[in-house]
């Protein structure tokens, strides 16, 4: 199942690396990723990660680990059907 994780994070050096490291630690391949500031002079970025993962339990663990990070302000997860780019991805 494709899952989309949306993270509001501090727009700081190394934060992307910090987040992707956590996916690596759980051996989860990131299939799709976007990152950018929420507005022009914002200190906050939206990071969107799409992964292919069946187990809800692993997803829960992943979210808990992400949530623990000092640089993560909020986190939401949606199933693949609710975001257009994951649909786009599925077409390929």
């Amino acid at each position: 199942m494709r899952r989309t994780v949306n993270l509001l994070v501090n727009n700081k050096l190394g934060v992307l690396n910090r987040m992707t490291n956590l996916f690596l630690r759980k051996s989860l391949n990131i299939e799709y990723l976007t990152v950018g500031p929420v507005d022009d002079d914002s200190n906050v970025s939206m990071l969107t990660v799409v992964i292919n993962l069946e187990e809800d339990q692993v997803m829960e663990e992943m979210k808990n680990q992400l949530e623990k990070q000092v640089d993560v302000i909020s986190i939401t997860e949606t199933s693949s059907k609710s975001l257009f780019f994951s649909k786009t991805y599925e077409k390929q």
């Binding site: 050096l13 690396n17 910090r18 490291n21 630690r25 000092v70």
Partner: peptide, 14 residues
């Protein structure tokens, strides 16, 4: 060291 220690610290800074 920032990258190297990222996964084994609670948090790190440069």
């Amino acid at each position: 060291i920032l990258g190297v220690s990222m996964s084994i610290t609670k948090h790190n800074y440069q």
